[in-house]
Simulated assay, not measured.
Amino acid sequence: MAEAGPAASEDPAWRALPLDNLTLTRKEGFAAFAEARETPIPLTLTMADLRALDPAALEHYNDDRRRFLANLRPIKTMQVQELSADLTDIFDAGVDQPNWQAKGMAAIDAFPGLGKTTIGLSFAKKVHNTLISRHGRFTEAGHERWPVIRVGMMGDTSVKDFNWAMLEFFAHAGRNSGSANAFLSRALDCAVSCQSRLLLVDDLQFLQFRSRRGTELANQFKTIANEFPLMILFIGHDLEGKGLYDDPQLARRITPLGLQAFSIEDEAGREQWRRFLLSLEQRLVLANKYPGMLADDLSDQLYARCSGHIGSLMSLIRLGSLRAMRTGQERLTKDVLAQVKLDWAAQQQLAKWEAFLASGKVTSNRTRAEGGGDDAPDAAHPAARAPG
């Protein structure tokens, strides 16, 4: 029996154990993430309603709004939907393959701040909940079912470190001593016994595959694909440049998937940007918000301040909303957004995009942009020269 967890019982033992429920590198933490209920949307009150609340009630209401802001659900753009569909196809194609066939491998490769980890985790969450709902929390042999294993990479990760991390995810008793091969054998026992079907490997850009250690790990990934009954999903940035595809077998097995920053250089890109802002606008819980607050009145400023990066945009929206709540303005305005401090990469792009949008050569919120094109800063791919 795998040492990953106890035998079946009416109440899963891991729910009662004082184990880590925060980090995604352990099964309890990943389960807490995957099975967490969505944060409820607080009721949008009017300004009169807010003024009628006593101080304690107002603080409680604002706590609910802060919690909701911190847990805004990902908005599924067309690009995200297509990437998720690709991941589902690769997963479904391999889940019922015989064990002697190598399972699928995919890699989400994109610049920082475009949501690749968010999409990968959303897919892993879907796999976790779907398979537990379909087959139960425990296997027929009485082992805990853990459909997903997550491992985060570090710059100096060795083969032994990686195998240990898989055991650490399962809280395996044998993770405290042993060789790299012993760790791998124990991890295989856990994956088989617990019917794991997805291995999520995040931050793969930390690894240089052209180094000796990187070559060893590349060979290890091939071994896992051959021996483990699961799909491997890599997440990282510039994986081709790091040498991931130098190995002919990995190049033939891994399906590369990408994400791009929002572009406003053509009508299709501007339409996608507008739809995203409209969806985001509807989720904000501010007393003075109104239709078109983001998509019409703040579209250009938002684009200039995030240069099309969803990570920078979401941080800007969260911080701006908190400031609007704290100051009592209860809406996002140009002045409110101008007070929000940006991340370093967004700051480097800000002056270029503000000048270009102010010139009238292009806009993010009109059906047709005048001029536009090659003069835009990093126009084709706003993330192309953003620092990593």
Rank of each mutant, 00 (worst) to 15 (best):
E140C: 01
R26M: 06
A180N: 07
W273K: 04
F123I: 07
R253G: 13
Q348N: 10
A173G: 04
L72Q: 02
L114R: 08
G373A: 02
R252Q: 15
A93K: 11
M293V: 01
D89C: 06
T327L: 15
Q195F: 03
E59M: 05
R212E: 13
Y61D: 14
G155K: 13
S193L: 05
C306P: 08
A36V: 03
F68D: 04
Q272M: 09
L188H: 01
W14Q: 01
L17G: 00
I90C: 10
A4E: 07
I108Q: 06
K242L: 15
I119E: 08
S299Q: 05
D343M: 03
L83Q: 10
A36G: 04
V151G: 13
P55Q: 02
C194S: 14
L87Q: 00
Q301P: 06
R66M: 00
R213N: 14
L58Q: 10
L204G: 05
A369H: 11
R145I: 02
I310Q: 08
K222G: 08
L19Y: 13
T327Y: 14
P6Y: 13
L83I: 07
L53K: 11
T46E: 09
S307H: 14
T367W: 15
V201P: 13
I108L: 15
D161F: 06
F33H: 04
V362S: 03
A358R: 15
W273E: 05
